[in-house]
């Protein structure tokens, strides 16, 4: 047993230096050179240089005049984020779905994405359908023609090869804010 101690400690130290220090440092060095924006959290910065959020993270938007992202079980907290983890057979979940779907009911059934919490609590995306569904409410609150908003949603729709089409709500609301303050759509 004792003669296993030297290789144990030496190899643990060496592996720590290689995989625990050199590897993450090396990856960081290349990442900061090649992809500095992504490596630092895809930050959205406004014209005054202030960080307003991350392209990848949902944030809270209160009020009828904004596109609402997926509901968040952790109230859009990031430290830590979280999910509801309610079972499919949960009475509490069924009750929430019932209340929320009646509250948001517009024309046609409410898209599931608008009444179900995401896995991360920070899902920044909606399906184009779930974004379009909110347009009548936003058009009324802001006094913007619906066609204008539909155009905005289509502009922000991405259709990846290996995943469903999505609209980034954080980016969409950013454009909405710019539209309303008369700066025009970015």
């Amino acid at each position: 047993m004792l003669d296993a101690l030297r290789p144990t400690f030496s190899l643990l130290l060496l592996m720590t230096l290689i995989t625990g220090v050199a590897y993450p440092l090396g990856v960081t060095a290349i990442a900061e050179l090649a992809f500095p924006w992504q490596a630092n959290g895809s930050q959205l910065v406004d014209d005054d240089g202030q960080v307003r959020g991350s392209q990848l993270l949902a944030q809270r938007f209160d009020g009828a005049g904004w596109f609402q992202p997926r509901p968040s079980a952790a109230d859009y907290a990031t430290l830590p984020s979280g999910a509801s983890n309610l079972a499919p057979s949960s009475a509490a979940l069924a009750e929430r779905i019932a209340t929320e779907s009646r509250r948001q009911h517009g024309s046609g059934p409410v898209p599931l994405a608008l009444v179900t919490t995401s896995g991360s609590g920070l899902d920044p995306d909606l399906s184009p359908h779930a974004a379009m569904y909110q347009i009548p409410r936003i058009a009324e609150a802001r006094g913007i023609p619906e066609a204008h908003l539909a155009h905005l949603v289509r502009e922000h729709t991405e259709r990846p090869l290996f995943g469903p089409p999505v609209v980034n709500v954080t980016g969409l609301n950013r454009a909405l804010a710019a539209l309303s303050s008369g700066e025009g759509v970015r």
Partner: peptide, 12 residues
């Protein structure tokens, strides 16, 4: 509400 598979706990 849409009658499709559940999105609770899933990402868009």
């Amino acid at each position: 509400v849409e009658q499709a598979g559940s999105l609770e706990g899933k990402e868009s």
